[in-house]
Write a protein that binds this DNA or RNA. Structure first.
Lengths: 227, 227
DNA sequence: GACCCGAACCTACAGCCTGTAGGCACGATC
DNA sequence: GATCGTGCCTACAGGCTGTAGGTTCGGGTC
C-alpha cells in the first residue's frame, strides 16, 4: 500500500460517510484509519485529534444542509417556504443520519462562526420574511422553530414513534400546521411594528453578524453542561 | 476497605449523580468504580454492562421527572398546567443535566415500557385534558409539545443561546405562548368531537397501554439510526 | 463453637481505543 | 545523483470494557 495522499478534507468526508453508515459513535480514529487503508497514527498528520474530526463533520454537514435548504425554499414564500425549510431538515436527517447527529452536538467556536452556519441562519430568516414578525421576535422565532424541528426529528430518530409510520406522517403534518400558525399569529405581536406585550420588541435588535446560529444548530446532548 | 455492600440501585444512583457532576460521558465503569471505592470488575456483579448503567440512569430520571411534573401541575389546568409541565422539564434539565441527557438517549425496551414512562405520559395527557383536543390528536400533540420542549432545552444546553440570558428567558416565554396557542387552536380541529380534516380522528385510537411514552422521551442522537 | 456456603470483592488479563515519538522511504528539487 | 521534506509507518504508554477465576467475610446449621 503506497501513499494514499490523504487530505484533511478527504479524511473528513470519509468520516462523515462513516458516521452515516455505521452511526456517529462508530467514528473512531481507528475505524477511520481502517476505512482509509492507513494506520491510526497516520491520521494525526491530517487531523488534530478525534474531536477535530467530529467538529469537521459538523461543519461539513452544516454546509450541505444549507445547500438543501437553499434549493428547498427557492421560489417559495410563506407557508410553502416554511414547508420547504422543515422538509429539507427532515430529508437531510433521514438520508444522512450520522451527519445529522453531528449537528446535534455542541459546535465549537470556529464552526459556530463559520460561513455555513451563517448561511443556514440567513436562509431561515429569509423564510420568516414571508411572515410579518416584529424585528425583535426574529431571534425567538428562530429558536422555537429550530427547537421544534430538531426536537421532532430527534424523537423520530430515537425511535420514539416506532412502528407507527402513518401516524408519524400525520404528526409531521401537524408540525407544519403548528409552526405556520404560530408564525402567523406570533405572540409578541404580529404586526411589523411591534404591537405590544408580552415582549418589548425593539429591545432586542437583530443579531449582530458573527454571533452565528442563534438557535437552530447545534442541538441536544448536555455533555458539557456540567456545572 | 472492607465490603461496601453495594446494591444495583445504589450503583445506579451514584452513576446518575456522577453524570450530573461530571457530564454524561464521564459515566464509565472505571470512574463509577473509583467513585464507589471499588475495583471496576466488581461492579459487574451488580450491573450487566455499561449500557445497563446508562439505561438505569434513564429510568431513574424518568421517575424523578414524573414526580416533578406531578407536583408542578397539581391543582392547575389549562395554560397554567401547561406552564407547570414545561417548567418542570426545564428545571429538571437545569438541575440534573446528566440525568436529563440520559433521557435524550434512545430508551431500551424495558425502560420504554416502565411504569415511570407511563406516568410521564399520563401526566402530559392530564394537562391536555384542559384543552379540547379530539381523541385522535392526543398523540400528535404529545409529540409536538415534547419535541418543542426537548428541542428548546437541547439548544439551551448546547450553549446555542449562550451569553444572552435575558433573551433566553423571553424565548422561553414564547414557547409557552406558542404551545398554548397551538393547543387552543389545534390544526386537526379543536372540537371534542373530531370535526374534520386533515386527520381522521378515531382512526387512531388512544394509545394502547404498554406502548409507552409515545413521543416525549427519549430524544435525539441517532446513534443507531444506521441503516 | 466449628463448619460450610454463598455473596461481595479482588487480581489478572485480553482486547480495543487515543495520542505521542521517532523512523523510513518515496519523490520532487537542485 | 545527492538532498530534503512529506506521508505513512512501527512502537509504545495509558485508559477503558468485560471475562475468568481466586479469596475472604459473614450468616446459617448442627
Amino acid at each position: 500500500m503506497g501513499r494514499m495522499n490523504l487530505t484533511t478534507a478527504g479524511v473528513l468526508r470519509a468520516a462523515a460517510d462513516l458516521a452515516d453508515r455505521g452511526g456517529y459513535d462508530a467514528v473512531t480514529v481507528s475505524a477511520l484509519a481502517r476505512e482509509l487503508g492507513v494506520q491510526p497514527a497516520s491520521l494525526y498528520s491530517h487531523v488534530r485529534d478525534r474531536a477535530a474530526v467530529l467538529d469537521g463533520i459538523h461543519e461539513l454537514a452544516l454546509g450541505e444542509l444549507a445547500d438543501r435548504i437553499s434549493t428547498a425554499i427557492a421560489g417559495r414564500s410563506g407557508r410553502n417556504a416554511l414547508a420547504g425549510l422543515i422538509e429539507a431538515h427532515r430529508v437531510f436527517a433521514a438520508e444522512r443520519p450520522g451527519r445529522w447527529t453531528a449537528l446535534q452536538r455542541p459546535a465549537d467556536e470556529a464552526t459556530a462562526r463559520s460561513e455555513s452556519a451563517q448561511r443556514v441562519v440567513s436562509l431561515i430568516w429569509a423564510v420568516f420574511r414571508g411572515y410579518e414578525l416584529p424585528e425583535g421576535e426574529l431571534v425567538h422565532a428562530t429558536r422555537i422553530v429550530g427547537a421544534t424541528i430538531n426536537g421532532f426529528l430527534g424523537l423520530e430518530a430515537a425511535g420514539s414513534f416506532a412502528h407507527r409510520p402513518v401516524e408519524t406522517e400525520q404528526s409531521w403534518g401537524r408540525v407544519l400546521d403548528v409552526l405556520d400558525g404560530a408564525l402567523r399569529a406570533w405572540p409578541g405581536g404580529a404586526a411589523p411594528d411591534g404591537a405590544a406585550a408580552p415582549g418589548h420588541p425593539g429591545a432586542d435588535a437583530a443579531l449582530p453578524a458573527g454571533t452565528a446560529a442563534p438557535g437552530i444548530h447545534p442541538t441536544p446532548t448536555a455533555q458539557e453542561a456540567t456545572p
